[in-house]
Design a protein around this nucleic acid. Structure first.
Length: 336
DNA sequence: AATGACCTCAACCGCCGCAAG
DNA sequence: GCTTGCGGCGGTTGAGGTCAT
């Protein structure tokens, strides 16, 4: 049997922007009768609207305690911090920002914060430094012909110039929340293609005759341990998500980086991040194919294998694989 | 001043979990 | 126990505004 239908399905209902008359009718009705049954409300209030439309209009715009206007710096920082833990849980984020609606926060994120983070070289999904851009920056700065090439995406050049001028002090890439990172990367693989989708640029990098030493280094184990500590005071509800001593993820970009990487010697599991578009592109490029250093290093890697699921796959990418098998895995699983 | 590109955000769409019937 | 609607949520759209040329 079930319930009676939500609203008249046979048309006659208005859609689109609300008029001031409609707003007033809705406000007057709710002030007089309160809200609760959105199905019957439109009819009782004399509105030619669906109940759902009325609810949305009230909760997102007409409710008296809604704070309108520009977001403050404090509000913006709160949103960023909460998003780094909660992801796109807009209603949960809104619950911690009095007077702001989930819709408003969502819009503000998509139109302002997300772009700002990207300009700063921060991945708006993982909230980590985008090492792919940092590494590309170092490659291009040391390759004037490439840097000045009109074939390269001008937006990418601007981005790199911006990052370089900021003197980014976080030259390595450690995921604070590996589980969350993997999930997000899996679900939103499109986001991780970044600007390397630009086939022209990929070709330019592949054609680059020699690679200079990258400007970043792999941190010592004591440094990574510090970095991996969750901010317990700030996000008490998310502590269970962090497993600081379980594993570390590092983007692998060049032979130099990889060599540093394999000399690390401590009790942590270090995983090369196969989701990085730069890692996969670089390893799959002609530069990587012709570099015995990279492939030898890869085949000599050993890991403490105590992980499951996605992490197993990552370990297999990086340990004890012959060149051909490694290449095959990359082709089959990363470029799909 | 005209025009096209880009941006913003209110509103809609479709899905999901829960609970009424 | 099953069906179906409600309320809530996150993703997407598109009209109107703004900016650049």
């Amino acid at each position: 049997m079930g319930r009676t239908p939500c609203c008249e399905k046979n048309g006659g209902l208005r859609k689109g922007p609300w008029t001031t008359e409609e707003d007033q009718k809705l406000i007057d009705y709710i002030h007089k009768n309160g809200y609760g049954n959105w199905r019957t409300l439109p009819k009782n209030a004399g509105l030619q609207r669906c109940g759902k439309s009325c609810r949305l209009r009230w909760t997102n715009y007409l409710k008296p305690d809604i704070k309108r206007g520009k977001f403050s710096t404090e509000e913006e920082e709160t949103i960023i911090q909460l998003h780094s833990v909660l992801g796109n849980k807009w209603s949960t984020i809104a619950a911690r920002l009095p007077g702001r609606t989930d819709n408003e926060i969502k819009n503000y994120w998509n139109t302002h914060i997300r772009k700002r983070l990207l300009r700063m070289g921060i991945d708006p999904i993982t909230h980590n430094t985008r090492l792919d851009i940092l590494a590309l920056s170092s490659i291009m700065i040391n390759s004037p012909d490439l840097y000045n090439s009109t074939m390269v995406n001008p937006e990418l050049l601007r981005l790199m110039a911006s990052i370089s001028s900021q003197g980014n002090q976080n030259p390595y890439f450690i995921h604070q929340n590996p589980q969350k990172h993997i999930l997000e990367n899996t679900l939103q693989a499109q986001e991780n293609h970044y600007l390397l989708q630009d086939q022209t640029l990929i070709q330019e990098i592949s054609n680059c005759a020699s690679l200079s030493t990258p400007t970043f280094v792999v941190p010592s184990s004591s440094e990574t341990s510090k970095l991996m500590q969750p901010n317990v005071n700030q996000f008490p509800s998310s502590v269970s998500e962090f497993k600081p001593q379980t594993c570390h993820y590092i983007d692998v970009l060049t032979s130099n980086n990889l060599e540093n990487f394999v000399t690390l010697n401590d009790n942590c599991n270090y995983h090369i991040n196969p989701q990085s578009s730069v890692t996969s592109t670089f390893l799959n490029s002609s530069i990587a194919s012709s570099s015995s250093t990279i492939m030898n290093s890869v085949s000599n890697l050993t890991y403490i294998d105590g992980s499951t699921g996605e992490e197993d796959r990552e370990i297999r990418y990086c340990s004890n694989l012959f060149k051909s098998e490694f290449q095959e895995q990359l082709n089959a699983n990363i470029f799909m």
